Amino acid sequence: MTVPTAPCVAAIVVAAGRGLRAGGEMPKQWSPLAGRRVLDWTIAAFDRQPEVAEIIVVLHPDDMALAETLSSTTPLRHVAGGATRDASVRSALKALSPSAVAVLIHDAARPCVSADLIAAVIRATIETGAAAPALPVTDALWTGADGRVTGTRERAGLYRAQTPQGFRPDLIVAAHAAHPGGAADDVEVARAAGHAVTIVPGEARNLKITYPDDFARAETLIKDVFMDIRTGNGYDVHRFGPGEAVILCGVEIPHDRTLQGHSDADVGMHAVTDAIYGALGDGDIGQHFPPSDPQWKGAASEIFLRHAVELATGRGYTITHMDCTLVCERPKIGPHHAAMKGKMADLMGLKEDQVSVKATTSERLGFTGREEGIAALATVTLVRA
């Protein structure tokens, strides 16, 4: 569970509308987008914000059963919405935690909101009591009727409103209680109660999905906002000792010596495993499988690799590529190259064109050149979207 840092902020995600202008057979918040649903991405935007201590999702009464399909590491609750947007917001405000110092109210149809924009609204809300993002109108404005231009309007001082809109909880609760209803957004409600609202610079990518073409734009923007690409490096060395074979990248190769280590000393697999741990920022093999623990004596290194892969997968990452270089004079790697690629691909759940296993010598220099041992270097790329 995410541990919130002061100040504690509540996020209300308004997802009770029908949104049928976007097309499809279901409301837009439940429509698929880049492998997830629109609402899933919107919740994720607030879930990764450390100041956000709770997320309240407002659902249409007909959609309440879908609440069980929503997830978040931040405490997540859901309430039934009303017949209008402001009625839905009032329903969520009643569920607010009393410890919240600010509440952000956000449209579910804006899944591309960035962490920077959320943070900026939080700061402005805490400083001034009410804040919302907006973009200045830059296009010429016309009036029209029957398909013809009937006039123009001055655009100076006009803004395109966005969400999340932030408020001090007592301020917005009282403002909603005094409002007759029918407001376009919560800024209108706050202003009707006499409160000033600070404008925070909005972002063009914080689009609101309204029409079918918006989904394609949103998918491109989602990758920019949420894509997390990590690269990890691994390095390992094992010395030679008496024996008749070595294990490299899961393949046993006949040799006049073997590699020594607490486990099976698969230097290549160890380097790849450490590369995954490195990309996750989660230590190395020695921390997860201490050599002082006798249960790992002679253990197959694929145990370690599978653990690292499962750890990455469990955190939402996909391994997209692995590159391992073995440094040795002997044994010759070429005859076993295909078997090594196949083994590593199988263990990591990758296609073989996502796996590279290669070898080089150190030109007879150093411990590998003197055939005292084998070194391995590995690089792994993880992607989370």
Score class of each variant (00 low, 15 high):
Ala245Asp: 04
Gly349Pro: 08
Pro133Lys: 10
Asp284Asn: 12
Thr69Tyr: 05
Arg315Gln: 13
Arg384Pro: 09
Glu329Val: 15
Val197Phe: 00
Ser71Arg: 10
Arg85Thr: 15
Val57Pro: 11
Ile118Arg: 01
Ala177Trp: 02
Asp266Cys: 12
Pro50Ile: 14
Gly243Pro: 03
Gly151Asp: 09
Val38Asn: 12
Val58Ile: 15
Glu363His: 13
Ala375Tyr: 05
Val58Ala: 14
His238Val: 07
Val113Trp: 02
Leu377Gly: 03
Ala95Phe: 08
Arg21Met: 09
Asn233Glu: 08
Val237Lys: 06
Gly129Val: 00
Lys358Tyr: 05
Ala102Cys: 00
Glu127Gln: 07
Thr325Arg: 05
Ser301Ala: 14
Thr138Ala: 11
Val225Asp: 07
Arg364Ile: 06
Ser292Ala: 15
Thr5Ile: 12
Pro294Gly: 04
Met340Thr: 07
Ala161Asn: 04
Ala95Thr: 13
Ile118Asp: 00
Ala177His: 05
Ser71Met: 01
Ile333Met: 13
Gln49Ile: 12
Ala108Gln: 08
Pro75Trp: 10
Thr125Glu: 01
Gly81Glu: 09
Leu117Phe: 01
Tyr159Gly: 09
Gly82Val: 14
Leu207Pro: 09
Gly316Val: 12
Lys332Phe: 14
Val58Gly: 02
Ile118Pro: 01
Pro61Lys: 11
Pro335Asp: 13
Arg370Phe: 13
Lys208Thr: 15
Val79Glu: 01
Ala300Glu: 06
Asp186Val: 01
Leu171Asn: 00
Ala80Ser: 14
Val38Trp: 08
Leu326Tyr: 04
Gln295Trp: 01
His255Phe: 13
Glu188Gly: 11
Ile276Asp: 07
Ser301Gln: 10
Arg191Trp: 04
Thr73Arg: 10
Leu365Gly: 08
Gly281Val: 08
Ala218Gly: 11
Gly157Trp: 06
Leu158Asp: 09
His238Glu: 11
His337Ser: 14
